[in-house]
Computed example of a mutant assay.
Amino acid sequence: MKPVSVLLAKRALPVCSVQPDDTVFHALQVLAEHEVGALVVMEGDQLVGVISERDYTRKVALQNKSSKDTLVRDIMTRDVLVVTPKTGTRACMQTMREKRIRHLPVVDAGKVTGMISIRDIMDDLLEEHEQTIAQLESYIAS
């Protein structure tokens, strides 16, 4: 499997972020606008958390709170696991499986450079399998 940097280069998406004092409603708007499932939470250049759709459903909707009155800081995940651009996708997949998470921020030299999702990993895995099948079919046919 490839390093994370290769997957990020294919997508060329901007790093989507919110601040801790933003409302959850604002975070939901950013999630919808960029069609992503999680955002990094930044204070200046510092990564301080991650907020996901799962955080919203479990910590706001199911607790009958208002997304317009709840701040990101109140529901974000603070102990963020991160990977580097050199981290292999197989290691990302293992971390996601073990920790039961779907998103990993990518940090290079202390700067957030992207976010990798389980979908990115699965797309890469499927692409790799399709290439292997094509090579095997070509070998068999020759």
Rank of each mutant, 00 (worst) to 15 (best):
K59W: 10
Q131F: 10
R97H: 13
M42Q: 08
A61D: 12
T95E: 09
V40A: 08
I133L: 15
A38F: 01
C16V: 11
S117D: 07
A27G: 13
T77F: 03
P3T: 00
M76L: 07
A134F: 10
L126Y: 12
I121G: 03
K65M: 11
H103W: 03
L104M: 03
R58W: 06
I51E: 09
T89S: 11
D22F: 00
V80K: 03
K86R: 15
E128C: 07
V107H: 01
V15Y: 01
D108P: 10
L81W: 07
Q19V: 10
R90A: 09
S66G: 06
S117F: 04
S138A: 15
Y56A: 08
V107M: 05
A12P: 07
Y56P: 05
L47V: 04
E128N: 12
L7M: 11
V24Q: 02
R102N: 09
T132K: 13
E43L: 07
P85A: 02
A27F: 00
R78P: 09
V6G: 04
V48L: 05
V80R: 01
K10F: 05
P3Q: 03
A9T: 09
T77P: 12
D22A: 10
M122K: 10
R11P: 07
K10T: 09
T57D: 13
K86N: 15
R11S: 11
T84E: 12
T23V: 02
A109F: 06
S66R: 01
D120E: 07
S52W: 00
I51K: 02
I75H: 01
V106K: 00
S52Q: 04
E128Q: 13
L47Y: 00
A134M: 15
L71C: 05
Q135R: 15
